[in-house]
């Protein structure tokens, strides 16, 4: 597909990011962009490096971690920057929605006061104005009777309401980028959909971009414009979310997509309880990486070159990129590799 329009500069540009914790190379050269106002999903299994990548962006790497590479927020280099730099960024340029709402809400202050304090931390406004904005923000994330609820303590909210309040807190100062780390894993599916709907709507209203860190493929497919799939600390595939999950080009993404039971809008598999495509083994421990492609030991298409050399991420048309030596030999879509057979 031709795209004659020059893309707008990314709000976040990550280039060759490496994070080593102790002696463990956990993130090994990750590059991706997040465009203004768009949602990018960072997808991976445990140990893939997705949370560490997010923490590096947020300036919250674990103690003793070593960072290299580049993280640019609106063009400003922030990789490894200190608390003084991040203090300037929080709220207006960068915001964080964690997995556990109670991790950011103080248990002893009314929710509205916490939102108002966030407003006054970046803007010289009166208490009354901060208060008004706090109530409006709670209203904006769908909390009914917001003026009264603003006076409640976090524990008086349900889990879903608390997560809405955290979204309101993240959005209240109009940040350019929100990083959400598994923001809904603790919630049940119905509440999860509501919360992500709220996040998408309010994000669109303020123009904020989103980096959504998740292990849930369906969530990423439903709520992100672009997807970056990590495996063992590297990007194995990235591109438009519809393409990455609809027509994956890396054997790893293909195996993930193929192994899911059909969604409710698709036909169920033929026959009662047909075995799902499955691959043996598990993701490698970052301490015990194979030489060559990290997925090679589990890949049905692995060739000698895959076991010797790590493949580079190579872009194709419409910004769909894949790191695979065998990408030219893959069926299209690559899920055909796994369809109807259990490889184990």
């Amino acid at each position: 597909m031709k795209n004659p329009v020059t893309p707008t500069p990314p709000v976040l540009a990550v280039r060759d990011l490496r994070v080593t914790v102790g002696a463990v190379p956990a993130v090994r050269g990750v590059s991706f962009d997040v465009r203004p106002g768009r949602a990018t999903a960072l997808v991976g299994e445990s140990g893939a490096g997705k949370s560490l990548t997010a923490k590096a962006i947020l300036g919250l790497p674990p103690h003793g971690a070593r960072l290299s590479g580049s993280i640019r927020l609106d063009g400003e280099e922030i990789a490894g920057a200190g608390a003084d730099v991040y203090r300037r960024l929080w709220g207006r340029r960068l915001a964080y929605v964690p997995q556990d709402a109670l991790a950011v809400l103080s248990p002893v202050h009314p929710v509205g006061d916490q939102l108002a304090a966030a407003v006054r931390s970046v803007a010289r406004v009166s208490r009354a104005e901060a208060r008004r904005r706090a109530v409006a923000a709670l209203d904006g994330v769908g909390i009914a009777d917001a003026a009264r609820r603003a006076r409640a303590l976090p524990h008086e909210f349900s889990g879903g309401m608390r997560q809405r309040a955290v979204i309101a807190l993240a959005l209240i100062n109009g940040p350019g980028l929100i990083v959400a780390d598994e923001p809904t894993t603790a919630l049940d599916p119905r509440v999860r959909e509501q919360i992500l709907g709220v996040l998408t709507d309010s994000r669109r209203a303020t123009g904020a971009a989103l980096l959504l860190v998740t292990h849930d493929l369906d969530l990423a497919a439903a709520h992100a414009d672009r997807a970056v799939v990590l495996y063992a600390g590297r990007v194995t595939e990235s591109g438009p979310a519809r393409r990455v999950f609809g027509a994956p080009r890396s054997p790893y993404t293909a195996c993930l997509v193929a192994s899911l039971p059909p969604t409710l809008d698709a036909e169920p598999l033929e026959g009662p309880r047909t075995p799902l495509p499955a691959i043996g083994g598990g993701p490698p421990a970052p301490t015990d990486l194979p030489p060559g492609c990290a997925f090679a030991p589990r890949c049905p298409l692995a060739a000698p070159v895959c076991r010797d050399t790590e493949p580079a991420l190579t872009g194709t048309e419409d910004q769909h990129a894949v790191a695979c030596h065998r990408s030219a030999d893959l069926p299209v879509p690559a899920t055909a590799l796994f369809d109807g057979k259990a490889v184990s």
Binding site: D218, F245, G246, L260, T335
Partner: peptide, 8 residues
Amino acid sequence: AHHRRPAR
């Protein structure tokens, strides 16, 4: 509340 997945 279930997700839809892009067509393959």
